[in-house]
């Protein structure tokens, strides 16, 4: 990477803010057993609905308060991040690989390959995504892998559509024609010439998709269709918090803030990365 590009886009605050939050949340999730102040599953009716630390009646060691079963909210959020990140990385990567590969093929080769792939995408996108997800999980059964599969199966089209359009634009460029004249094979051109030019978009979409996966997982947990064990999830905590909103608002508000920050950070981080990796800075 040369100096010119670093000075143009490297100091972008959103890259560092979004990346910083994601790194913090990720580290917390990975190190959850080491850093969580309490056991996230331990119930104690003596400690139910403790408020966060700055309010009267807070207990030390329960920074963000407790829920109606006396479980520590901060610890539950930290552990909930584990599932959120596993789903984000696994589901988004799967959707990305499948969608980008098909999009690249459709956009670069065109013709019947494009017609078939585009038709499948159209049919796919006719289903409302959240309903589609609920339906899929209902069929696959609840559980971590079902959630991941459901998100990947639904959202590969997001990659496919964007990458198809970009690859199509690149395929019309003269440099692709020059490569053909020189005698490169079609697949070689697709991978060596076209792919690097759509990579910044793939990276941005991947990050965005991770945020979307976090939301979808939260929604599925919220409607009790995600991980069926009592492992804490952000969506599950939100669902519980909703029931006790009048007695303990913090159980709803903190997971919502965590969720929103994470999702926003994923999308901003992706955009900032794209700007940084794009040599032309379109």
């Amino acid at each position: 990477m040369d100096d010119a590009r670093i000075s143009r886009s490297g100091s972008s605050p959103r890259l560092w803010l979004a990346g910083g939050w994601l790194l913090l949340a990720l580290l917390a999730a990975v190190l959850a057993p080491l850093i969580a102040p309490q056991d996230p599953l331990a119930q104690d009716l003596m400690l139910e609905r403790l408020p966060p630390f700055w309010l009267d009646g807070a207990e030390p060691g329960y920074w963000l308060g407790t829920d109606s079963l006396g479980r520590d909210l901060l610890s539950r959020l930290i552990f909930g991040g584990r599932i959120a990140f596993i789903v984000a990385f696994a589901a988004a990567s799967a959707a990305c690989v499948v969608g980008s590969a098909l999009g690249l093929i459709a956009g670069y080769f065109g013709g019947w390959a494009d017609r078939i792939i585009s038709r499948i995408v159209d049919i796919w996108m006719a289903f409302p995504p959240v309903l589609f997800a609920i339906l899929l999980v209902a069929v696959l059964g609840t559980g971590l892998s079902s959630v991941i599969i459901a998100i990947a199966v639904i959202d590969w089209t997001r990659f496919c559509r964007v990458i198809r359009a970009e690859a199509m634009g690149q395929a019309r460029m003269d440099y692709v024609e020059s490569a053909r004249i020189a005698g490169y094979g079609r697949i070689g051109i697709m991978l060596r010439e076209v792919l690097p030019n759509v990579l910044p978009s793939i990276v941005a979409l991947l990050s965005l998709e991770m945020g979307i996966a976090v939301i979808v997982e939260a929604i599925l947990s919220f409607v009790n269709l995600s991980i069926s064990t009592d492992d804490p999830t952000w969506g599950g905590i939100i669902a519980e918090g909703r029931l006790s909103i009048h007695q303990a608002w913090w159980v709803l508000v903190f997971p919502l803030i965590t969720l929103i920050l994470t999702v926003l950070s994923f999308s901003q981080f992706g955009e900032a990365l794209k700007a940084r990796f794009d040599p032309v800075l379109r």
Partner: peptide
């Protein structure tokens, strides 16, 4: 064709791979 010919194109921007 690859070995014996070459093209000097009209638009020197799009004829080079931007990335």
């Amino acid at each position: 064709i690859g070995a014996r010919t070459a093209l000097i194109p009209q638009d020197p921007l799009t004829a080079l791979n931007p990335s």
